[in-house]
Design a protein around this nucleic acid. Structure first.
Length: 422
RNA sequence: GGAGGGGUGGCUGAGCGGUCGAAAGCACUGGUCUUGAACACCAGCGAGGCUAACGCCUCCCAGGGUUCGAAUCCCUGCCCCUCCGCCA
């Protein structure tokens, strides 16, 4: 959520900056909401003040044994007006709030202008795509019988995966490998969290109310959802908390499965394991002082890159343009890994700074030692990395002419020291 | 599943239906003292919102209700704790 004060003080400026990501802010509607909210709130609070004074006076009069009947009479009249004003105020506030919850974050000034991923700006490349002495196959061909899409369809349906033997192991090994790096070398605290969360949590990180169609809803009395990323439960760990200065930055690493409806992606990436309804991810989450979030984004992106470097996978970093930016993000750096099977760079990590946008929604606050007052903290997260896509990248980049796959040295301790699999 | 107890400020924990946004302690901040620190003493110290300002409003788990007036009484829900049973 944007700071309502900023929105009120300079709506034109906010509208201008939101235009960078293609969001049209309805200034007339905003002005209407603001005016009626203000009128109603002032009227309601005046009546409340009267009520408080009168009932105090009644108490005093009775204590003195005086007649309070006229005041009680006045109260019943006042109550009718107050109830009406309050009801109207509650209604307007709810609508206003709903409006605010649908406004995306303001992109930072360095976000490239553009509408689609074609307008994203490449920042740097690391590693050289390997020269193959044979035509590289894609991961489905490399995996062969150890990937069983038919079984996945039998069990569930399309866009789910089944792996066997060394691939199941490789998948699990990547998770351990990544968590170990972030805990041992990057100072993250490992955390285990629920994979089902409530509505308020989904609202906190910005998935709701706008993107319900991307989520799997769980049938139960409460409104529960499967998490689309660990970002949701991990960031909300600190929901409603006030952090003292000594306890920040908080850095969490968390492995979870992720569940996505992929509602708008019918027909996209239907062939391999690139786009699934269920996939695993090792996620990095940071909660930091407001002044430190841009440095933290750089640092966090570097942490995700370390995994790619350790695995010797060629990749590039891309600055997402305004139109490609996620709802809650102020800036996002994507890491894209080279996939020889499709001769393209594909997203394998997405590192974002949300500034105070999520913190405001989830009421994650930090006590500023200078002022002694709480203010919204800043939140960030990034994949470190997406497991399924990393497995694809290893399979495709390290495939051999004989059909086997060489293990990157860093991964071997997690793979029984095997040099080759398959 | 059965029986009982409870949810109050960063924490612990008091709170006859009115003067309670809330005692007290801890923690924290400032001051005195000290070469410096600790100790001691003094003072301050919840969160959110509105207003140009004075100041006003809201919040004692959540939602309803009773009442002129609710942290305090009633109902419902959620959560936590203890005991019994059941399952692992």
């Amino acid at each position: 959520m944007l700071d309502p004060r900023t929105l009120r003080r300079d709506p034109e400026e906010v509208a201008r900056r939101l235009a960078r990501r293609g969001h049209v802010l309805d200034l007339n509607l905003l002005a209407d909401f603001e005016r009626s909210r203000r009128d109603l709130q002032m009227r309601t609070e005046t009546l409340q003040s009267e009520r408080n004074q009168t009932s105090k006076a009644i108490g005093l009069a009775r204590a003195r044994g005086e007649d309070s009947a006229p005041m009680v009479e006045a109260m019943s009249n006042l109550r009718v007006r107050l109830d009406a004003a309050k009801q109207e105020l509650t209604r307007v506030q709810a609508e206003y709030n709903e409006f605010l919850l649908h406004i995306p974050n303001i992109p930072s000034e360095e976000v490239p202008v553009g509408e689609t991923d074609a307008d994203n700006k490449e920042l740097w490349r690391v590693g050289e795509p390997r020269n193959f002495e044979f035509p590289p196959r894609d991961h489905m061909a490399v995996g062969g019988a150890l990937i069983d899409p038919e079984a996945a369809v039998r069990v569930t349906g399309s866009r789910f995966s089944v792996f066997y033997d060394e691939l199941a192991r490789l998948h699990r090994a990547l998770i351990q490998f990544m968590i170990d790096i972030h805990v041992t070398h990057h100072g993250y605290r490992e955390v285990y969290v629920p994979y089902i969360v409530n509505e308020d949590t989904m609202r906190g990180t910005g998935q709701l109310p706008k993107f319900e169609e991307d989520l799997f809803r769980v049938a139960s009395d409460a409104k529960f959802y499967l998490i689309p990323t660990a970002e949701v439960p991990v960031t909300n760990l600190i929901k409603d908390q006030i952090l003292d200065d000594a306890s920040v930055p908080l850095k969490f690493v968390c492995h979870t499965p992720c569940f996505r409806r992929e509602a708008g992606s019918a027909g996209r990436d239907t062939h391999g394991l690139i786009r699934q309804h269920q996939f695993e991810k090792v996620e990095l989450v940071q909660i930091v002082r407001p002044s430190e979030s841009w440095d933290a984004l750089e640092e966090l992106t570097g942490h995700a890159e370390t995994v790619l470097k350790e695995l010797e996978l060629p990749y590039r970093a891309v600055d997402l343009c305004g139109g490609d930016l996620g709802f809650a993000a102020a800036r996002t750096i994507d890491l894209e890994v080279w996939l020889p099977g499709s001769q393209a760079y594909r997203e394998i990590s997405s590192c974002s700074n949300f500034l105070d946008f999520q913190a405001r929604r989830a009421r994650i606050r930090w006590r500023n030692p200078e002022t002694g007052r709480p203010e919204p903290a800043h939140t960030l997260n990034g994949s470190g990395l997406a497991i399924g896509r990393t497995m694809i990248a290893v399979m495709e980049n390290f495939q051999q002419a004989d059909g086997s796959v060489r293990m990157p040295p860093a991964l071997r301790p997690y793979m029984r020291d095997l040099e080759y699999i398959l």
